[in-house]
Design a protein around this nucleic acid. Structure first.
Length: 602
RNA sequence: GCCGAAGUAGCAUAGCGGUAAUGCAACGGUUUUGUAAACCGUAGACCGUGGGUUCGAAUCCCACCUUCGGCUCCA
């Protein structure tokens, strides 16, 4: 994300100046290049540009060398100001069409329609004065601030080339975006690169394959993960956990088919908005069906199947089930973005007066759930963008009411929350939860969504105390959101080293020699019968090799099983990653293992 | 979908116009082992798919599939 100049930290002026040096280097090497915007981002900068001939990876090396040459010249960054019309002519004269467009747009429509990355070029306080910065022969539109001269530029490195649409719109020109890192010192740059490598080791796509949790098949297709027995064990455990938290609050399970006539989505409002993202099915009799991309419309039909009294509300339906969305192929990524998504979905049908209480129950479930993994949660009020009313269903007054209800809950909780303008669903505002993982990355996870539109579209009511039909509200809530995404998050959070309760294999018995195998298998059978997930390693390998194998496969507990154990000596239980053994008499082991394997904790 | 890059045995990599190599895993044999890698051997790849250029293609060209990095999108 681009940073605004008012949020600049001391390092950011240097990063911004480095972006100018990048543009200067490209301008020297590739005359005729037109430049877009070049903002500061986390850890560095980028610059969007349209070169006469496309840039390749080899050019990146060339450009970086040229940048070092320019930095070596030690030129000053000099600021000049001019009226906006003069600036338009100035950049037109230099063939910089994108800069001319930005300036002209600013002149006619003001700063409010500018994106963050574009605001790095303009000062909203003085929109009719353009400032430019000169470095040697290179001149760029820019609000600043910059360092005094290229002598102050620290350690930098160009990292990648990517495509990016001009002003973020898919219908515009596609420019080449050059990304770079910039830090005050070479040591900091190296440290950052090292951290990146650490994060790569946790990549769920790599760990998922190594740990045998899920696979993809070219025959089945992209974005359609196939879950192995081990991966399925984890999915079920997570789902059971969610259920254990929901059950006391009166949630009931329901089950729906995975396809429906299109009529359902025409009524819900989804067809108009998402028709092209649906997998469609034509029946032999030429009727049009769709794979379900969400569950709420189906669930409304269970609610609507009978007349409901206010006395039976809230009605809480929940179901963990797959939905299917025809995403753009370029969006797919490991488990983070897939076509077959398992949602732990719930819909609460309630009166307006019950919304608050129900939302608080969900909040409590979410907190308990995420606490068990050691995630730090931060809520976000995802509300509508008032300047884009056409994107949302329903009357603004209803939106205001719903947004206020959620805001009150947030204020009541006295927690820090993020204001998410434009993050609402098309049918209502929501509270989304952002989870910070063990290496500080933030993921959007659980959600509580208010919806007055679908109940209205489907005519959902209850009979109230006065015997009248009263319109009701619907709350959509998901604890994990998507199990696929949540799996990707916890795989990376734990780096594949899962806590005992969640590990697909909890205990491995390492048979010392052939003669111990039968006894080890017998013990394993007994522990399995007690509910533990146990394996035996009885291969013809040394005990050292078996220990190593259990470690690299990230099995939480292992027990060497040989003569000593068979003759009744205490077991030595090895916890992964630790050389210290837990020594325990055999007859105590089962109870202890059961206890720790059930404790849902980090 | 768009821009760019990449697909070689189960995994990780080498080879980059002259007919596929290495490590780990697998399999067979020997060893019967006490807390992070025993030893010896064997097998395993139409080099993503299809087409083209060439006497000859893993290697060059085209299309498609899949993956990766971004952009756009995300109920």
């Amino acid at each position: 994300m681009a940073k605004l100049p008012q949020d600049f930290e001391p390092i950011d002026a240097m990063r911004h100046s480095t972006a100018h040096v990048l543009a200067a280097a490209v301008a020297e090497l590739f005359p005729g290049t037109q430049f877009g915007v070049g903002p500061v981002i986390e850890n560095g900068f980028y610059y969007d540009m349209k070169t006469v001939t496309p840039l390749g990876p080899d050019d990146l090396v060339l450009v970086e060398a040229k940048m070092r040459e320019i930095v070596g010249r030690g030129s000053a960054f000099t600021r000049r100001e001019m009226p906006i019309d003069e600036a338009i002519e100035f950049f037109r004269g230099r063939g910089q069409g994108y800069k001319v467009e930005l300036l002209s747009d600013l002149k006619s429509r003001g700063t409010t329609n500018l994106k963050d990355e574009e605001l790095q070029d303009f000062d909203p306080a003085a929109p009719m004065i353009a400032s430019i910065y000169e470095t040697g022969d290179f001149v760029d539109l820019c609000r600043g601030p910059h360092v005094a001269s290229t002598k102050e530029i620290g350690a930098f490195k160009l990292t990648k080339l990517a495509g990016a649409y001009w002003r973020g719109k898919a219908e515009n020109d596609q420019l080449t975006r050059v990304y770079g890192l910039a830090f005050a010192s070479a040591a900091e740059l190296e440290e950052f690169v090292r951290q990146q490598e650490e994060a790569e080791k946790r990549d769920h796509r790599k760990l998922g394959r190594e740990l045998g949790l899920f696979v993809f098949s070219d025959l089945v297709g992209p974005g359609l993960p196939l879950w192995t027995p081990k991966g399925t064990v984890m999915r079920e455990l997570l789902n059971d956990f969610v259920w254990s938290l929901r059950r006391p609050h009166g949630y009931e399970r329901v089950t729906i088919p995975h396809i429906t006539k299109k009529d359902l989505y025409e009524t819900s409002g989804h067809w108009a908005k998402y028709a092209q993202d649906l997998f469609k099915i034509t029946t032999r009799e030429d009727h049009l069906f769709a794979m379900k991309p969400m569950n709420c419309p189906h669930h409304t039909q269970i609610y609507a199947s009978e007349q409901r009294s206010y006395r039976e509300l809230p009605v809480r339906f929940a179901e963990t089930t797959m939905v299917y969305r025809d995403e753009q192929s370029g969006e797919l990524s490991g488990l983070s973005r897939v076509l077959s998504i398992t949602q732990d979905d719930a819909h609460v049908f309630c009166r307006v007066s019950q919304v608050r209480g129900e939302a608080e129950i969900v909040w409590e479930i979410i907190q308990k759930f995420y606490q068990a993994f050691g995630f730090e949660l931060k809520p976000r009020l995802s509300r509508r963008d008032p300047s884009a009313a056409e994107k949302y269903l329903g009357a603004p007054e209803d939106w205001d009411k719903a947004e206020t209800a959620l805001r009150e809950i947030l204020e009541d909780k006295k927690v820090e929350w993020i204001d998410g303008v434009g993050e609402a669903a098309f049918y209502g505002p929501k509270i989304d939860f952002m989870a910070k993982d063990s290496i500080g990355r933030v993921w959007q996870v659980a959600t509580i969504q208010l919806d007055f539109n679908q109940p209205r579209n489907f005519g959902l009511t209850c009979v109230n105390e006065a015997g009248e039909k009263e319109p009701i509200m619907m709350i959509h809530c998901a604890i994990m959101g998507s199990i696929e995404r949540f799996m990707s998050v916890i795989i990376e959070h734990y780096a594949g080293v899962f806590p005992v309760w969640l590990a697909p294999v909890q205990v491995r018995l390492l048979a010392v020699a052939d003669k111990h195998a039968d006894a080890a298998f017998a013990v394993a059978r007994q522990l399995r019968a007690a509910g533990l997930r146990v394996e035996v390693d009885a291969d013809a390998a040394t005990i050292g090799a078996k220990v190593r194998r259990a470690e690299t496969e990230k099995i939480p507990l292992s027990v060497v099983f040989g003569d000593k154990e068979m003759s009744g000596e205490p077991w030595q239980i090895r916890a992964r990653g630790s050389k210290e053994m837990k020594v325990m008499r055999a007859e105590e082991c089962e109870a202890w293992l059961l206890e720790i394997s059930r404790e849902r904790s980090m």
